[in-house]
Design a protein around this nucleic acid. Sequence first.
RNA 1: GGAGAGGUGGCCGAGUGGUCGAAGGCGCUCGCCUGCUAAGCGAGAGUGUCGCUUAAUAGGCGACACCACGGGUUCGAAUCCCGUCCUCUCCGCCA
Length: 429
Amino acid sequence: MHDINLITQNPQKFKYYLEIRNEDPSIIDRLLEINSQRKELITKINNLRNQKNNISDKIARKQYSSEEERQLLVKDSNLLDREIKDLEPILSEVEQSMKNILLNIPNIVAEDVPVGKDSNDNQIIYTEEEGLTPNFDPLPHWEIAEKLNIIDFERGVKLSGSRFYIMKGKLAKLQRALINFFLDFHTQKHNYKELYLPFIVKGYCLEGAGQLPKFEDNLYKDLEDDMWLVPTAEVPLTNIYRDEILPADVLPLYYVAYTPCFRKEKIAAGRDVRGIKRGHQFDKVELYKFTLPENSDYELEKLVQDACDILRALKLSFRIVKLCSGDLGFSSAKTYDIEVWAAGCKEWLEVSSCSNVLDFQARRANIRFRRTPQSKPEYVHTLNGSGLALPRVVIAILENYQQKDGTIRIPEVLQPYTGFDQIEINWKY
RNA sequence: GGAGAGGUGGCCGAGUGGUCGAAGGCGCUCGCCUGCUAAGCGAGAGUGUCGCUUAAUAGGCGACACCACGGGUUCGAAUCCCGUCCUCUCCGCCA
């Protein structure tokens, strides 16, 4: 969410940001109009209240000479009250519609983000192909997994419908090992603090993180209790310090957390239906930072490297893509995607999306800090990135670590976690 | 889920209708003092919004709102009433 005063001061800039995100900039004009209505109403109501307070004060101090005079004061106050009560609902309506508009305006676009229409205009800024590649043509993961009996697609669908699957035996353990490896790696090598979070949150958390009100369609929810399954750990992480003022010396804060993620994927209906690339439920280890505003840019570069280090340790090839303005997520001012090479389906798979959100979420969730005990509170900057998303790393391992005989080798760094060094044919039932 | 108690400023804690944005203590900030991080003395500190002033989203002045949240009673509510949420204790249930 943006500071309405910043928009008022520079509407052209905000219109431009909307344009390069392929959104309608005319909303800014409506916003400005509503805002001036709002201010006018506030001024009016405040004046009336002021008059009313003065009367109460007079009565309290017994500044009247007769009972009749007192009654007159009471009568005046009642009149003022009626005027106020007439205006108040109008104001709250105006405020509500202003908030609705503000909540639907995406973040600004960082200066160094390339302007572009869609993912075709994204820039590949770095490629590292030191990773393992089979010297034969490996099967895509859904085929090899079926051959080895380590993924049961049919029965997953039987339980929960399309885009659900069951991982079995050593593959299930491989995934579990990866989660532990990721958490250990980031806590030990990169100084992130590990958190175990709720997987269900209140609606205001999703508003704080930017999923609501715009992306309600993509979320699983229990409206009766206002409880929502998290689509990413970013949501609970963003809200840990909501409505708090942090002392500056605790910043930056680095957190890492594993959560499952639940997404309806309505927007992506029909895409990536084969295999485990896009499910309604998947696991992810998320990296999150709270930083001083002046450091967030640098912290983003570091965050990306932290995520890349995992791929290096797993000996997987990857590349870094800088998203163009048209492909940026709603809350992000700048995003790098990290894509891993999958030799079976021959695709670069997005395993991480690292974003500098600036103060966008901090405003929505009201997360601030104080530079010194006597300085004014300021909004923190927040950053998030996967470190990493599990299924796609699993895909990369199944495809890149595939052997000619159809078995899968386990990356060396994972072997202490799995307790085995290869996956072969699994039990059928 | 049932019964009871309670939710006040960074923290503790007073306050049951009027000058209370809130005593007191701790902590914090800035001075002073003491020849060395302590003690003492003095002063100052909440958040947000609107308006005026200003080059200023710096500072100043004024107003309004905020004592869990939402409503109500009243000229006037932290204080009274209703609803919701949360916390604690006991019981029940359960991994």
